[in-house]
Write a protein that binds this DNA or RNA. Sequence first.
DNA 1: CATATTTTTGCAACAGAGTTGCATTTTATT
DNA 2: AATAAAATGCAACTCTGTTGCAAAAATATG
Lengths: 144, 144
Amino acid sequence: MGTKQQITERITALLKDSKLSVTETRVKILELFMKSNGALEHSDIETQTGQSFDRVTVYRTLQTFLDKGIIHKIPTTDTSVRYAVCKSECTEHDHHDHHVHFKCESCGNTTCLDETNIPEISLPKGYAMHNVEVVVSGVCKTCK
Amino acid sequence: MGTKQQITERITALLKDSKLSVTETRVKILELFMKSNGALEHSDIETQTGQSFDRVTVYRTLQTFLDKGIIHKIPTTDTSVRYAVCKSECTEHDHHDHHVHFKCESCGNTTCLDETNIPEISLPKGYAMHNVEVVVSGVCKTCK
DNA sequence: CATATTTTTGCAACAGAGTTGCATTTTATT
DNA sequence: AATAAAATGCAACTCTGTTGCAAAAATATG
Ligand SMILES: [Mn+2]
Ligand SMILES: [Mn+2]
Ligand SMILES: [Zn+2]
Ligand SMILES: [Zn+2]
């Protein structure tokens, strides 16, 4: 993981690479993502920052990170929106997170299974495939 | 497809099989699902019924259909919730819709690809799989 | 068919999520 | 240190979904 100092440096570098100003909000939210072993939703961030940032700022920060390819969304069947840091080489408008997501029915955590690859899917004739999202639900190894 | 009369009879039978009262709202909403070639969200139903039913009734009707295994949800990466009729033998609390969903980036429609089956996915050790959701995005055959 | 019972509906009121405009503050540039 | 550019916080608003309750509709019963 690295010391707190090293993490802050990595975050600063990441923000500068993405041509973003280094602000308290952005550093803090990225820290949360990096410490967390699962996906976060907006309310998690509000809770874990202890309401030190305005709701609106959190929304705008998440949108900015999405735009810059720093985080990606994970599909759900409810109205919640979950985000996780991109591990591949994602850039602006060009995400490369082709991995499986796992939602644990016991602890509720959603995690990226980066090592699990998505098998080929053959669509009916006439369909062009751009992206595949796979979300597996079940029980994670921690809850087993 | 069948005549309008035949569709109404099929819907009435379906509701009775599910031990639900046959009401105007339920018949109308099921008609919409059966006519539609894609998934519907709450706002589609409100639009297409011309606000003849209360919002709350539509929410409750969708929840009832979900509970009874008449419709299923489709995951999205935004806050919207999409629903489609179950074609397999789904029953209360026991859905069997193991098929791929396709979201067209051109027309926006989401469809069930019932003929496309989901390939095996091998999870890391310690994970128990209960359900797999696959959502493919791209361009559908109509928009091609 | 008439009546009683059960279920569904519509309304009002509310809670939560997300958005927008704008003035103020912070960050980056010179 | 001064200036320009960008991000933040606040207020106000919209949109989505929920709950309690009385009225209406559907079903069950004789
Ligand atoms: Mn991921
Ligand atoms: Mn489906
Ligand atoms: Zn778990
Ligand atoms: Zn299309």
